[in-house]
Computed example of a mutant assay.
Amino acid sequence: MMSIRETVNSAKSGWMKADSPAGDIVVSSRVRVARNINGFSFPHLLEQEKAEQVIHGIQTALDNSNLKTELELNRMTELSPVERQILVEKHLISPDLLHNHEKKAVTLRDDEAISVMVNEEDHLRIQCLLPGLQLEKAWELVNRVDDGLESTLDYAFSERYGYLTACPTNAGTGMRASVMLHLPGLVLINQIKAVINAVSKLGFAVRGLYGEGTEAHGNLFQISNQVTMGHAEEEIINSLNSVTGQLLAQEREARKVLIRERREQLEDRVGRSYGILKFCHVISSEETMRRLSDVRLGVDLSLINGVNPDQLTELIVKTQPAYLLKQHGGELSPAQRDVLRAEIIRKEFNREG
């Protein structure tokens, strides 16, 4: 079993594979369910001793299930602040798991497809993150882990309200399903605001790269369901698949318009970004995201050859602050970060493949 130490030492993750269903536009699919254990307060009210009991109970449930060979529980205290932040930057845990980390734990599968957050907003947040558009498969994997744990754990459940959660908006199925989409075409033809408004009216939330409260840097948008009560899991998945299908069609049409009507400007844009990433010596995080988005679009439209799209997604993580600190082995000023970031990008763009 791969250790969590290996996970935080590598920027790569299984969800970064562009060679996946609709991988030219859908970066990843995620399904997460929230569960709580009967007889315990929600995590924000848990004292340390009770939090320990929850962690111990989940460890026992893992040991008693067929999951024990693939999922290992790690306390957040076993990781340094930088290593904890890297797990956030890789989308394997939420930022909320960093607060009061003494009471919290996480379990990860070797391929990083499955993570279980313990004592985040709820006692259990079971997450599956897969590359491309694979919501059904993600739900299937989450459901298997959920069933394995429920065979030992007594979940808080109401016949009327479904699974009980710390935030009422998660009650019912406790499910949040989301897709991460790369939508530069819609941004460049100035259609993105209209599309986001339409999606929001259908009951879906639109957020940035790191979820709630974050901007859509690099033209990456996270679309997720808002309602969990009164809808079956399959219904939530089907609705999100349907909306995603519409967005895929609109983005592909936008890209055709750009090629047909603005090819020279588009080639110039992606070529300039490619040149900057290949030769830069100082670059900010925001500019990195913008340039990576341009190059990814160029790769998808065959305007740029010889660049692996997986490499571009990996660079999103490699150029985040915590990963840079880990690489450097100590504190970095913002100016030093911009220099190290550029060095990492240059190396990636000047190696074969």
Score class of each variant (00 low, 15 high):
S115W: 04
G218K: 02
V317Y: 09
I86Q: 01
V82G: 05
T244I: 10
G353N: 09
L62F: 00
R35C: 07
G329Q: 02
R269C: 01
L129M: 06
E287Q: 12
K137N: 07
P43E: 13
L153F: 03
R176I: 02
S41D: 15
H231M: 10
F349Y: 11
G185P: 02
E215Y: 05
G162S: 09
P334K: 12
T169L: 11
V270G: 06
R255G: 06
W15I: 03
Y161E: 08
V243H: 00
S41V: 07
A342D: 09
I55M: 03
P21Y: 12
L87W: 07
L301Y: 05
R296T: 05
F157D: 14
N197V: 14
H123S: 06
R291W: 14
T77R: 00
G23Y: 13
M2P: 00
L277F: 07
L297M: 06
H182T: 10
S151V: 05
I55P: 00
V295W: 04
V82D: 12
G275W: 11
I304P: 04
E140W: 10
R176G: 05
E215G: 15
E6Y: 03
H56T: 08
P81W: 11
R75P: 06
P309R: 14
K278D: 08
L209A: 08
R35Q: 07
R176F: 13
N100Y: 08
S10A: 14
R346V: 03
V118S: 13
L130Y: 05
L248V: 07
R160M: 12
K104D: 03
G132C: 15
G329V: 09
D268Q: 09
S158P: 05
L202A: 13
Y210H: 09
E253P: 02
V88R: 06
V82Y: 01
D294R: 11
S20L: 15
N9P: 02
G162C: 08
Q85I: 04
R84S: 14
P131H: 11
H101V: 03
E70N: 14
C167N: 14
E120G: 04
T165N: 09
K201Q: 04
L315Q: 02
S80F: 05
A198Q: 09
R341Y: 09
G14M: 11
C167E: 15
L130F: 11
L92Q: 01
P184Q: 06
T313F: 14
E264I: 12
N119R: 07
N350M: 15
R272G: 01
L149A: 02
G271Q: 14
L67F: 01
E72Y: 11
I192S: 03
L71Q: 06
E120A: 13
L133I: 03
H101D: 04
L340W: 00
A205F: 04
I55Q: 03
L277S: 08
G148N: 03
L124H: 02
L181A: 12
T107R: 07
L108Y: 06
Y163C: 07
M16I: 10
V339R: 05
E352F: 11
L301Q: 07
V88W: 11
R262V: 00
E212Y: 09
A177T: 00
K278I: 11
K90R: 03
R290T: 15
D310A: 08
M1E: 14
M1C: 01
A138E: 08
K278Q: 15
D310Q: 13
F157W: 10
I276Q: 15
A194L: 15
F349Q: 05
G271I: 04
R255F: 07
S80A: 12
